[in-house]
Structure formats: structure tokens, C-alpha cells
């Protein structure tokens, strides 16, 4: 009961202090708000980019075309060699017959032309469709496949895949750096706010010490104040994320640029982002006030 009474008094005092130094609190809240908005944008971008990358990774396939005169034994041998490569996830063989049938089924023109070819005349090659584990190493894996005997041509959309992956990487890194930098700046602003609160409550702290308040009892209101600033600062970013992301998703029909790049569905994605924003706000607020209390509250 006693602990609850002290805690409720501390919470009351912390709220009082937030409003007593309102202009300063507002500066900290605004800084947290801006930081968290950037954090939200970065997270939405990063997570969507991650998803795009996953989709691209799933879709990207290396196609190895075999020499026309490759026999069944050699095909089996190549299949074993492909499976033995480090970065290879799966290997699927597609025979020239099966490719021809697919092509003829897909178009009447193909059917007319291809039906006149004898087996010896057909330019269609047997192929292996290879999926890789790490898309970043796709070029190296393609080279290794090319080096296998009887493998004629290797295709995987050279250049485009690497470029896409490196752009995604840049987006992820840039947003990460921006978030870290802003969090540091915000933490310093909170340290400053709490420092001024400590100075403005110097007499109160002195009296608290004189009448026998424990050190923890004196420090807790400042920590709670940092926490309150963090929570207040996260309100606008959370609302902006929930409404903003849903609106963008609806407007774009859940697709970005093309059908290939699908956005993450708003629910439960926005709730996850909101929770992360709230937690970051609370941690930054508490960390800032803890630092200030440690540095400026000598008791």
C-alpha cells in the first residue's frame, strides 16, 4: 500500500512537472515526435523493402541451357553437380519436350511453327532451373554453373537483380543511420529537459532529502517524467502511421510501381509499428532522464 501511495504521488508529480515546464516539455515531445515519424517511415520502408527482396529472391531463377547433344547420363551428372554447389537451394530439370509442349500450348503461332520441326531440327534445349539461397551471390553461382561441362548458356537477369538488391540495401542502411542519429539527438534533448526540471525543483529535492525520502523515491519522478515525454511524443507518429499507411495502401491498391511489388497489408502491420514506436519513445525518454538523473542529481 505504501509503495502504491508513493508511486501514485510520483506519477502525479511527474505529470505536474511536465506541465509546469511546458515549453521545455513541448520541445522534447516535438523532437520525439519528429524522430518517431522518421523511425516510422524508415520502418515502413525497410520492412516493405525486405518483403520485396524476399519476393524477388523467391522469383529469381538461374536457367542453365544444356548443349543440344547432351545425353541422359550427362544430364544426371550435371544435376548432381548443380546440387553440390554451395549456394544452390533447389534444382529442377525441364526437358526440351516439356518446354516445346508448354510453348505450343501457350500460342497457336508457336504450335504451327514448332509442329513442323523434327527432333533433330529443334533448337530447343534441355534446361535446369536453379534457385539460390543468397541472392547476393547469384553472379558467382551463375559462373560456377557456366563452368560445368555441357552447360551452354546461363541466364538469370544479370545486372538487374544485383542493382535491385544493392538499391534495397542502400535504402535499409540509410534509414537505419537516420533513425540512430535522430534517436541520439532526441535522447540529448530529453537529458536537457530533465536537467532543467532537476534545477527548477532543487529546493523540493533538498527538502525531500531532509525529511528522509529515499534516493529512489527522489529519482523516480524524473524517470517517470522522461517516460511520459516519450509516450506523449509517440502519439502523433502512431496516429500518422495507422491512418497514413492505410490511406497509402488503399490509394495504391497495395502495389508499388508494378504488380510485382506488393505492399504489406495494413493490419496487423500498423499495430506492430505502433507498438515499436511506443516502446522506442518510452525507452528513449527513460534513458534520457536516467542519464540526466545520474549526471545532475547528486544525492
Amino acid at each position: 500500500m505504501k509503495a502504491i501511495r508513493i508511486l501514485s504521488r510520483n506519477i502525479r508529480d511527474s505529470f505536474k512537472s511536465v506541465f509546469r515546464n511546458f515549453s521545455l516539455s513541448l520541445a522534447s515531445i516535438s523532437c520525439i515526435t519528429i524522430t518517431l515519424i522518421v523511425v516510422a517511415i524508415s520502418m515502413v520502408l525497410s520492412l516493405n523493402v525486405n518483403r520485396f527482396t524476399e519476393l524477388v529472391e523467391k522469383d529469381v531463377t538461374i536457367v542453365a541451357f544444356l548443349d543440344l547433344e547432351t545425353n541422359d547420363v550427362e544430364i544426371n551428372d550435371i544435376s548432381q553437380k548443380l546440387k553440390g554447389l554451395n549456394n544452390v537451394e533447389s534444382v529442377k530439370f525441364k526437358s526440351k519436350q516439356s518446354i516445346s509442349e508448354d510453348m505450343m500450348a501457350s500460342s497457336e503461332t508457336f504450335k504451327n511453327i514448332m509442329s513442323e520441326w523434327s527432333e533433330a531440327e529443334s533448337p530447343i534445349q534441355d534446361t535446369f532451373q536453379v534457385k539460390v539461397k543468397d541472392i547476393k551471390l547469384i553472379g558467382k553461382t551463375a559462373d560456377e554453373i557456366k563452368a560445368i561441362e555441357k552447360v551452354d548458356v546461363v541466364k538469370y537477369g544479370e545486372g538487374m537483380v544485383e542493382e535491385l538488391v544493392s538499391i534495397f540495401d542502400i535504402v535499409r542502411r540509410a534509414s537505419f543511420i537516420a533513425v540512430v542519429a535522430l534517436i541520439v539527438v532526441t535522447a540529448f534533448l530529453i537529458i536537457n529537459t530533465i536537467k532543467i526540471t532537476i534545477f527548477s525543483r532543487k529546493r523540493e529535492i533538498e527538502i525531500m532529502r531532509l525529511v528522509g525520502a529515499s534516493n529512489l523515491n527522489i529519482k523516480i519522478p524524473f524517470i517517470i517524467e522522461g517516460l511520459i515525454l516519450g509516450v506523449l511524443g509517440s502519439i502523433i507518429p502512431i496516429i500518422a502511421t495507422c491512418y497514413g499507411y492505410t490511406a497509402i495502401y488503399d490509394k495504391l491498391g497495395g502495389k508499388l510501381f508494378s504488380d510485382l511489388i506488393k505492399m504489406i497489408k495494413p493490419a496487423p502491420f500498423i499495430y506492430f509499428i505502433s507498438l515499436v514506436l511506443l516502446i522506442i519513445g518510452m525507452i528513449v525518454g527513460m534513458f534520457g532522464s536516467l542519464r540526466a538523473v545520474k549526471k545532475y542529481l547528486k544525492i
Partner: peptide
């Protein structure tokens, strides 16, 4: 009262 409040008295 402040002296007693910080001690958590009812």
C-alpha cells in the same frame, strides 16, 4: 504534509 507524503503515509 510534504514531509509525510514523501514517506508514503496514508
Amino acid at each position: 504534509a510534504f514531509a509525510l507524503e514523501v514517506l508514503g503515509l496514508p
